[in-house]
Design a protein around this nucleic acid. Sequence first.
RNA 1: GGCGCAGUAGCUCAAUUGGUUAGAGUCCCGGACUGUCGAUCCGGAGGUUGCGGGUUCGAGUCCCGUCUGCGUCGCCA
Length: 593
Amino acid sequence: MLRTHTCGELTKANDGQEVTLCGWVDRIRDHGGGVFVDLRDRYGKTQIVVGAESDAAMLELAGKLRNEFVILAKGTVRNRPAGQENPKMVTGAIEVVVIELQVLNESKTPPFTPGQHELPNEDTRLKHRYIDLRRQAMQDTLVLRSRIIKGMRDYFDAHDFIDVETPILGRSTPEGARDYLVPSRVHNGTFYALPQSPQIYKQIMMIAGYDRYIQVARCFRDEDLRADRQPEFTQLDLEMSFVDSDDIIGMIDGLMQKLAKDILGLDLPLPLPRLTYDEAMTRFGHDAPDLRFGVEIVDLTDLAKTVEFRVFKSVADAGNHVRAINAPGGAAVFTRRKIDELTKFVQENFGAKGLAWFRIEEDGSLFSPIAKNFTQEQLDEIRSRTDGKPGDLIMIIADTWDTSCKALYALRKKVGLALELYDPKEMHFSWIVQFPMFDYDEEGNRWNAMHHPFTAPLDEDLEKLQSAPGDVRAKAYDLVINGYEAGGGTIRIHDSAIQSRAFELLGLDAQSAKERFGFLLDALQFGAPPHGGIALGIDRIVMLFGGLENIRDCIAFPKTQKAADMMTEAPNRVDVEQLEELAIRIIESDDEA
RNA sequence: GGCGCAGUAGCUCAAUUGGUUAGAGUCCCGGACUGUCGAUCCGGAGGUUGCGGGUUCGAGUCCCGUCUGCGUCGCCA
């Protein structure tokens, strides 16, 4: 090692010691006769001094240092003169008086510096990611990520799980998300698919008798990005045999308790709270609600049937829904203009027909442009059902179930944020369980698997597979943290009769099921144990534990919204020779339609 | 694919109703200075206002198109 210490560890205890530090020049304060340099590595910063003790040559060299030069400084640790300590620095009690100074490497003037106060725009950060990754915040996050993954591995190792790698080059099973495809050279005209998850492999590991499997698995989905979604992401993939839902949930409960304690110092009481899917949709309009605050949805459909107001009455009579949320103290924050914006927002994003609202005045009366359409009794009823208090704002969506859920969920999120109804540092863990097994595809006129086609139904719902598929609930569970889906899993079907029935409902005949999943269906017939598992989104968990707002900040080299890497400029065009070997021809489209 | 926000000096931003030579801080270059820690002081350099059209006597500003980044809806079994 060129160095004897890092830049984050020297204290008064090292006074008088001769040390050698290596690092990057973070900042220079040049007084002519004396130069102060903050030297930085990933452990911290230490002030080094070239001053009276130094000869002219070293002073000249120090004067030539610039931001992000890589230097080696050999010197003596010395307590700083009285009054010159810097309490903001961990090493602020000491400084290193330089005896020998070497420039290990110069740096071009960087487009931005890791220590600068205003963060550059994201494209600049992504293009020069090596500079961005020098920032304290990025380093903290990558260390956090490493600790979380190690915590997971330690926990599962202690519970007898084994870590198995599954293929990256796999078979395309076109269902769900789009695949990333890799052309085969040996078999021209055929393609591998990158895994959307190791789902099928881990089930086969159960059939093979490795009853506790984990993997830190890279997954790929060729779909559009979001702040919390990357095309390439990492999940903690897990599968267990001889288990039911409670066993998987319990295992992950234990993991979350450990991580919360080790990483955040939080004591999580177990079991983590569980909500059924129906409950979540009814109370919050979403299957991953943010439970750090209340503001639950109140159903006013029955009341709406009795009112004169045609907008409400017609919706209710048509079998649709009139539902409300109450923004506590929202009247002051959501002005008429803000409400107009919210109305436009729910109309444009969710196709809602409108947004009705009531403001509760100081005297308890309800003010609204539509108030004249209601009797006093009806107004009182609206107020009491929504638990309205003076200063509150009641927002009502009259629409289909689906639209009212989406609009009210989105409004609830905005209300929680705008009214600061929760502490941003708070963490709330919960499970959403008993998802519907299928949802109906109106356009395709058929049932779709809500999770995947191997998900097992609840035992008590088995007979409804014949009579009422839409009412069948699945042995499925999602882990929700602060309104984000942090993981999801299911118990799998290991009974071939039930599996056949599920395929039938999904419109897959025996022949096409065999074509698509033949190898798994075969394997399931050779002694498949009852099994199930879960996948936890590691990037999202890092984001949530780190209190961050987007997933790119949790990944060393993330992709942009158009799935590009700004640093390497991937994806890129390749040589004609490469394409020829793969028997691939590019069709250039010159029309913009 | 839809909707929205943004793009001006290396970086972060400003520029009145469309008006004359596009400014500031920082960075960079040169100089001064031994106790700074967002050092200070003096001087200097630095611009295809993302790109392409259009309107106008005149466009950073208005219009059309396009590219890039971000947010979001669709999408993500």
